[in-house]
């Protein structure tokens, strides 16, 4: 399954990958429920996989690659997920830390950043999400996406430029 044999390898990978995978998936699909569904499916796929991996990292990359693809497929139902995300965001924000104009500005900024992320082309978004939320290196992202480090570097740059362009004609990004 994961490497040599055994449930132990699976458990180690589970310990290592479950939390970051959930964090990435929540950001990708914008819904905790959908993220958990995908996370469960992908771990079950891994558990049932009979072919081994040459190295433990390969199993991690495989896991994230499959989860990412499932998240992108899930995105076809994006309208619903965006609504779910907005609902979730509405429930988490405005719970008393700030009040007045500052809180309103911050909420608006969060909403716009999230909107921009959801509109970002898939190939750029997956790199940015893996980098910003997964905290993977270019080398790791290249292994996950089965591409070159150079390509990851270009995509990260283009993602930033795309986001900068998105915000250019509107107000400055309010970064709290």
């Amino acid at each position: 399954m994961v490497g040599g044999d055994s449930e132990t390898d699976f458990e180690k990978l589970y310990e290592r990958a479950f939390a970051p995978l959930m964090r990435i998936l929540v950001r990708m699909v914008g819904s905790a429920e959908a993220a958990e569904d995908i996370c469960q499916e992908v771990f079950i796929k891994l558990h049932e996989r009979t072919a081994g991996f040459p190295k433990p990292e390969e199993a991690l990359y495989w896991l994230i690659r499959v989860a990412k693809n499932m998240a992108l497929n899930h995105e076809k139902r994006k309208g619903r997920e965006a609504k779910a995300y907005k609902k979730s965001l509405d429930s988490t924000r405005g719970k008393g830390r700030e009040s007045g104009e500052e809180a309103v500005l911050k909420d608006e900024a969060f909403r716009r950043v999230q909107e921009a992320l959801l509109r970002l082309p898939k190939k750029l978004r997956e790199v940015l999400i893996l980098k910003e939320y997964g905290e993977f290196s270019y080398k790791e992202i290249a292994a996950i996406l089965k591409t070159s480090e150079g390509n990851v570097k270009v995509r990260a740059y283009r993602a930033r430029e795309w986001l900068a362009g998105f915000f250019k004609n509107s107000e400055e990004i309010h970064v709290p």
């Binding site: 959930m22 929540v26 429930s91 900024a109 992320l117 930033r160 986001l163 900068a164 990004i173």
Partner: peptide, 21 residues
């Protein structure tokens, strides 16, 4: 570029109970 990264990281994530999941 740095402010874009900060903005992305600071957007609240939908709440989830990691332990329960």
């Amino acid at each position: 570029y740095r402010s874009l990264g900060r903005a992305l990281r600071e957007v609240p994530s939908p709440a989830f109970d990691l332990e329960a999941a």
